[in-house]
């Protein structure tokens, strides 16, 4: 008799990994699998019963893909999407107890699917990838929304104040506390524009998107503290640099001084003007909820 562990491990192989891919499709494949060392403890288990579990697992992934990537899904036929669900869940089996997190590798999977014959062997999936090279970017965009919406709330430090400095004199006394539910991502393709166009396009006309050209941009996705929903914000290079530099600086003042030293376009700006623009930027970030507030410099 197989031990509980032996049985579970072989069920895991059959139902969750590429080694078990297709073995439940017909009796001959199933019988052959149960005669290998990887499947020997499953001998005698009715194939139909396990096949139902395979269908349930695929169905769970399929509906989660639909929920999280509704725009990306529109570029695939139903048969292609079902095939993607099956090979995706086996190439990237979920390591989290939360089903929605099984989708975290899906954009990467789309990025690399062209090089994997197990993915592209059916349903002309190579053609879809060639025709719409922005699909991975689109999936990243949709996936990050879920990540940001579900991000944990943070406990603010004791000296936290829900505000930003009012004057240049205060810039050296405070440092920022950014909204922790945020993600900054560089996209190759103009995803916001693609989404806007898709809203006005029927499925049959989606081929027009094969003409989309790359247009790199940095986009901040963050959770609005009022609505608790994800917002998307295209960052200009200065704001992007301000956010990343401030993570390593001891105060708002140090951040601005560092930026002036490292960004040629700021070098010639007088200090007063730099601080004035800095305060404007802080107020803008604060009013959008990207910046939660400030803490005192120790």
């Amino acid at each position: 008799m197989a031990s509980v562990k032996e049985l579970q491990q072989q069920l895991g192989t059959a139902l969750l990994t590429m080694d078990g891919h297709n073995v439940l499709n017909d009796e001959a494949s199933w019988t052959a699998f149960t005669q290998t060392p990887q499947g020997q403890h499953l001998a005698g288990i009715p194939r139909e019963g396990l096949y139902l579990y395979e269908e349930l697992l695929r169905g769970g992934i399929f509906s989660t893909m639909n929920n999280i990537f509704p725009y990306t899904a529109r570029f695939f036929s139903n048969a292609q999407w079902v095939h993607l669900a099956e090979v995706y869940r086996r190439i990237y089996p979920n390591t989290s107890f939360q089903l929605y997190r099984s989708m975290e590798a899906f954009p990467e999977f789309l990025e690399t699917m062209a090089s994997n014959p197990a993915v592209t062997c059916r349903h002309n999936l190579n053609e879809v990838g060639d025709k719409f090279p922005f699909l991975a970017d689109l999936a990243w965009y949709e996936g990050i929304e879920v990540t940001v919406q579900n991000a944990p709330d943070i406990v603010f430090p004791q000296s936290f104040e829900p505000g930003v400095p009012d004057s240049a004199n205060e810039l050296g006394q405070w440092k920022p506390v950014w909204n922790s539910a945020r993600h900054l991502k560089s996209f190759i393709y103009p995803v916001p524009e693609i989404l806007r166009q898709m809203d006005m396009t029927e499925d049959e006309q989606l081929t027009i998107f094969s003409k989309v050209k790359p247009a790199p941009s940095d986009i901040l996705i963050y959770r609005d503290p009022e609505t608790l929903k994800a917002r998307f914000f295209r960052l200009n290079p200065l704001t992007s640099a301000f956010m990343s530099t401030s993570e390593k600086s001891s105060s708002y003042l140090k951040t601005l001084e560092t930026l002036q030293k490292t960004m040629p376009e700021l070098e010639a700006i007088p200090k007063e003007k730099l601080f004035e623009e800095g305060l404007k930027l802080l107020n803008q970030c604060y009013s959008l909820g990207v910046l939660s507030g400030s803490v005192t410099v120790i």
Partner: peptide, 17 residues
């Protein structure tokens, strides 16, 4: 039931022997 093995999750309920 069990819903995971080898640090991978089925995210479904698999029966016990």
């Amino acid at each position: 039931t069990f819903s995971g093995i080898n640090s991978l999750y089925f995210n479904d309920l698999i029966p016990m022997p």
